[in-house]
Design a protein around this nucleic acid. Sequence first.
DNA 1: CAAAATTGTTTCGCTTCCGTTTCATTTTTC
DNA 2: GAAAAATGAAACGGAAGCGAAACAATTTTG
Lengths: 116, 116
Amino acid sequence: MSISLRPSQALQLWQQVTLSEVRDDAPDLTMRQMAILLTIYLERPPHTVRGLAARLQVTKPVITRALDTMGRLKLVSRHRDERDRRNVLVKRTVEGALYVERFGDVIIAQALELPI
Amino acid sequence: MSISLRPSQALQLWQQVTLSEVRDDAPDLTMRQMAILLTIYLERPPHTVRGLAARLQVTKPVITRALDTMGRLKLVSRHRDERDRRNVLVKRTVEGALYVERFGDVIIAQALELPI
DNA sequence: CAAAATTGTTTCGCTTCCGTTTCATTTTTC
DNA sequence: GAAAAATGAAACGGAAGCGAAACAATTTTG
């Protein structure tokens, strides 16, 4: 399956997906939280606080707070790195994987409904 | 110009665009603010507080607060409806139009850089 | 024209996020 | 082994978001 995306449709796609998310009961993630979540689930581990902060070009407390919130939502988990106990390794969870998968489905569903 | 979007790429696109926005200096909009902004710029006027609240399925104060913030950023403006002075008409601004246009460009630019 | 309905804003108490600074723990360096 | 460096979290004061309820202004209803 493949859909074609033209420039005029990109914004419409974004609008429809954000509308879907806003209307959804689940709490909205902030842009930063979404960037962190997708980075964890789409890019190769390991993921550390420092590494994520560098990837997003934000400060470490931003990552710590976002992990606090998404940890509460069970979208990610934290574990001490036993090889270097200063590090915290951010791991994927079943709930998080389902969340990301569902989000991908929403994007595709909305893309398929775009006017030709 | 047209790009092809397959399901596995939808999430990557979303990640790259959110990364771009997070790294950008401009203040991040919340998911709700983004949904409101795109609705105002992509759908036919008139846009009222009540209408936007219904479209997003959120309460009116959510719209009022988002318009406060985006008004401060000059992305939208508010005007009393002279035909029914209970209504507030939300209008587009030059700055807002540029913001949305630039955002569309970011999406397309990131889409073009997706792995095949 | 008075009562009811409609619209948007404000207020309330609470939560979360922000950047900056400080702190505790662990590892590396000399 | 002591000092320096690195890592992540906590603390701080301030800003902004939240839902619910109350409010002022305007229009519609009867």
